[in-house]
Design a protein around this nucleic acid. Sequence first.
DNA 1: GCCAACGTTGGC
DNA 2: GCCAACGTTGGC
Length: 151
Amino acid sequence: MRYWLMKSEPSDVSIDDLAAFPNQTVAWYGIRNYQARNFMRDQMQVGDRVLFYHSSCPHPGIAGLAKVSRLAYPDETQFDPSHHYFDPKATRENPRWVNVDVQLVEKTRFMPLQELRGYPELASMRILQRGNRLSITPIDPREYEFIVSRL
DNA sequence: GCCAACGTTGGC
DNA sequence: GCCAACGTTGGC
């Protein structure tokens, strides 16, 4: 089992939105970065644990715990010309983008980015590195446990 | 709104 | 295959 941090803009899908969805599950659509796509396609397994992170918002930070509930499959939004995430180079025969499904495990207390930055134990987390933009990053199991034990 | 970082594109 | 230009991300 692996551990991941997945960024979501709360104006798009917040932890409360996730909690309100059917089965408390969301398709992680809209990933248009090859490295992040490859994590979903090649490495994510059902049951993998996810830190659900709010980004690009007034209060960035960890908002809850989730898990991978379905293996990667083609992202529907790439086929829809009216959609923001439409990709003219993608076809049904040759999809370019995939997504997993993510299901809520628990809405936790909110752990702000500022707090994460304060723990020396987490200093090597990718999310904390200057210039990091990757929206899906693997998390070291010890870092995951450290964070969960403080939520 | 600024700006650093970095991924992508496309001409050559 | 190089690399300059451009676009996007995301914290502040």
